[in-house]
């Protein structure tokens, strides 16, 4: 077994152990961190590995969240089918948005994705008879079960989050070492060169957006499932910015950067909440400082300085 896989399995095992070691409050925090880290990992595949800076991933997160929550709330769908609906919904949205947005590049791509996400957010508000808008709705606890486990309990929530986090991490780890992932990195590094080696850059980017969007949708669905709530604020602009923040902080283009960045920021938000309600202020300060002083993030810098093998 190689170092990268060993590291991933080690992190997963440590997270499993953490539930029994940490006080309940921190275990609860960690469950949320793992779910949001799934989101950040999805974002990282597009941004960190392919070089596609989207400002609209909340659209995919929201598609997954509403895909699951609406089918549970209004049609009484059980967990697994609802989760499947969420994945299909976010994949479809990502496929359509990707096909359109990828006709643009750079700054235009950022603005187009931002606008599609804004349209998605407004759509959630427009159908507030179903979504209850910003206020959102609480999912019936009776439906939040899987294979006999109560996903609203602390343990059920933690281990469901860990399972999905572990699957996503191993998937991302496999993707970035497979020819598909190598090609994405090639596109990020030098797109014209990748084209002139015979890579179908447009199609690869499109696949990257679809996989990235689907993982983000999985995160949205998981969030609704485990925390029992869906609301339009999860589809709004700040939710497109947060994964960018987590990934930049942890290290774009590293497999574990999203987890590190998410954990760091969630605790920073948590600590600052005793001082102020304006937690996005912290996000703003960290974003500015990162772009100025640590553009490669924590693990990116670590990889550059000390551990070149870091996945």
């Amino acid at each position: 077994m190689d170092r990268a896989l060993a590291l991933h399995l080690g992190v997963i095992a440590a997270l499993g152990l953490a539930y029994f070691v940490l006080p309940a409050y921190h275990a609860g925090n960690l469950a949320r961190i793992m779910v949001l880290a799934i989101y950040a990992m999805g974002f990282n595949l597009a941004f960190g590995y392919t070089g596609l800076l989207s400002l609209g991933h909340a659209l995919f997160f929201g598609a997954g969240m509403y895909g699951l929550a609406l089918s549970m709330q209004h049609f009484g769908a059980p967990t697994l089918p609802a989760l499947l609906i969420a994945l299909v919904a976010s994949a479809l949205v990502a496929a359509v948005v990707g096909a359109l947005a990828l006709r643009t590049k750079g700054v235009a791509f950022m603005i187009v994705t931002l606008m599609f996400a804004q349209a998605g957010y407004l759509t959630a508000l427009y159908f507030s008879a179903w979504t209850r808008g910003e206020e959102g709705f609480v999912l019936p606890q009776a439906l939040r079960r899987f294979a006999g486990f109560d996903l609203s309990s602390a343990a059920g929530r933690y281990f469901a989050a860990l399972l999905l986090f572990a699957l996503t991490l191993l998937l991302i780890g496999a993707i970035v070492r497979a020819p598909f992932g190598r090609a994405l990195i090639a596109i990020r590094e030098n797109e014209p060169r990748a084209t002139m080696l015979g890579y179908d850059v447009q199609r690869l980017k499109w696949f990257a957006i679809i996989v990235s969007g689907t993982i983000s949708g999985l995160a949205g669905a998981t969030y609704a499932l485990l925390f029992g709530y869906a609301g339009a604020s999860f589809a709004a602009v700040p939710y497109s910015i947060l994964p960018l923040l987590y990934v930049l902080l942890g290290g774009a283009g590293t497999t574990l950067g999203p987890l590190v960045g998410t954990a760091f920021m969630i605790y920073l938000f948590d600590l600052s909440s005793s001082l102020t309600d304006a937690y996005m202020l912290i996000a703003g300060v960290v974003l500015v400082l990162l772009t100025m002083f640590l553009p490669q993030g924590m693990l990116g810098t670590l990889r550059k300085r000390a551990l070149p093998w870091l996945p």
Binding site: G106, V107, A278, M280, A283, G284, T291
Partner: peptide, 18 residues
Amino acid sequence: PERTIVATIGMLYIIQQG
């Protein structure tokens, strides 16, 4: 161009939340 957008997003939240 891209880092400027990220930095101005940061400025956005600093000003707004401030």
